[in-house]
Design a protein around this nucleic acid. Sequence first.
DNA 1: GCCAACGTTGGC
DNA 2: GCCAACGTTGGC
Length: 159
Amino acid sequence: MAQHEPSYWLMKSEPDVYSIDDLKNEKVTLWDGIRNYQARNFMRSMRIGDQAFFYHSNCKPPGIIGLMEIIQTKLIDPTQFDQQSKYYDKKSKKDSPRWDCVKAKYIGKFENFLSLQEIASQYTSEDLTLVRKGNRLSIIPISPAIAKSLKIKLGNLKH
DNA sequence: GCCAACGTTGGC
DNA sequence: GCCAACGTTGGC
């Protein structure tokens, strides 16, 4: 059986909340707290071995900074049942959890930071919905061709 | 701080 | 089911 080619994703995180350096230190993280159905559904279609660009959002400047690999999928997001968590969801039932998540591992930081401004000047919103005005989705699929082109601009990975 | 682009909620 | 009001994300 031939292995699947990996799919590619872009996952946003605010560096004040969780940065690429936090992931570098932890090596592995549970990508929890996703409370948007479209983003959740994208996570549900992830497979082990997929790669995800780590995007720093809501900072100056926003942009792609590193790369992760998806190492576990279809995990229950524990924060939905944690009353102390800002992601607590009282409507979610233990026997049918509403929110799930994936586990991702640090691969590296790119040699070049690629700002949203640079990305927007080089790709159309059809290439990459990230650059669509007002885009709020925190998880975005990336086509293999666009992923390849982004990686060329981003340069080598620093581990 | 402003605002665009949604998603969610709740009255009817 | 419609839609207005409200909330959130995130760039600028």
